[in-house]
Simulated scan of single mutants.
Amino acid sequence: MGICAGRVVIVTGAGRGIGREHALEFARQGARVVVNDLGTGPGGEGGSGAPALEVVAEIEALGGQAVANCDDVSDWGGAARLVKTAVSAYGRLDVLVNNAGFLRDRMLVSMTEQDWDDVVRVHLKGHFLPLRHAAAYWRESAKAGERVTGRVINTSSGAGLLGSVGQANYSAAKAGIAALTQVAAAELGRYGVTVNAIAPAARTRMTEEVFAATMARPESGFDPMDPANIAPLVVWLGSEGSGHVTGRVFEVEGGSIALATGWRHGERAERDGRWDPADVGDAVDGLLAAAPSPEPVYGA
């Protein structure tokens, strides 16, 4: 039966890598899955329906139910059709896993406008649009008196939490996804929907060069960079049992799950009235001395 038995799940970018493992594990846990993937290359080039269809075939071979969808999640109409695919195929939608994305890595001084626009469009807009259409579906369901246990799991990144040299576009988009997660959690709770995010680390097409030297641990055979390691947390967050968790970001890799705490109000310097610019430096130095050192940017 599994912890998601009977639930209907959309996974974007599910044709390969982390998304594929999400889709397969949801199916193992009893969910019916909409496998969304454009089938593009690592930099967003080309396109093919083959990856999505292959994952559907894998799920059916497991005895599960799945349908393919090849709509562009960064297109308003495409995202709307994606949600309609789930409802048309299975009569409902319970879980949205936003995972689709690609990379256009450049140092900031070499990054083109197109590099910036494409990555922000696919990652950040490609999260907003499916979330927007799923939220509208759940709001109408709640208003109609239906019991809603909607779950959204977004995909941020360590680059979005801490920054990453050579990935200004990707880091900005992933930071935006973390903030979007918090806002959506606050707004959609009234309808029975939780919204959380993960910041995963695993070996995929986008990270294979970074993690190429990371091998399985010889004593156990466990591969800490296997993308399958990410799915258990995501599947649990998609279950009804996770209803008390919302607005959170989890770092996950290998056998590790960590709760990221993000920005918080810190030390404060105050005076009665407006600051004199000449006095601001001493005040800032005092705040810095009292505050913890920031985590370093990846690659710095």
Rank of each mutant, 00 (worst) to 15 (best):
M1R: 05
C4H: 04
V9K: 00
V11R: 08
A14T: 00
G15E: 07
G19D: 06
G19P: 01
E25M: 15
T40I: 12
T40Q: 07
P42H: 03
G44A: 01
S48P: 06
A57R: 15
D72H: 12
A80S: 13
V87E: 08
Y90E: 00
R92F: 07
V95Q: 00
L96C: 02
F102H: 06
R104H: 11
D105C: 06
S110D: 11
T112E: 10
V119K: 08
R121W: 01
H123R: 01
W138V: 01
W138A: 00
A142Y: 03
G150K: 05
R151M: 04
G160Q: 12
L162P: 01
L162W: 15
A168K: 04
N169G: 01
N169F: 07
A173W: 12
A178H: 07
L180E: 11
L180H: 01
E187Q: 09
G189D: 04
N196G: 08
N196H: 10
A197I: 03
I198W: 07
V210Q: 12
R217L: 15
A228L: 13
N229M: 04
L237H: 00
G241N: 12
G243K: 03
G243Q: 10
E253R: 14
G254W: 08
S256N: 14
W263Y: 03
G266H: 02
G266K: 03
G266Y: 09
A269L: 04
P277E: 01
G281M: 00
P292A: 08
P294K: 10
Y298Q: 14
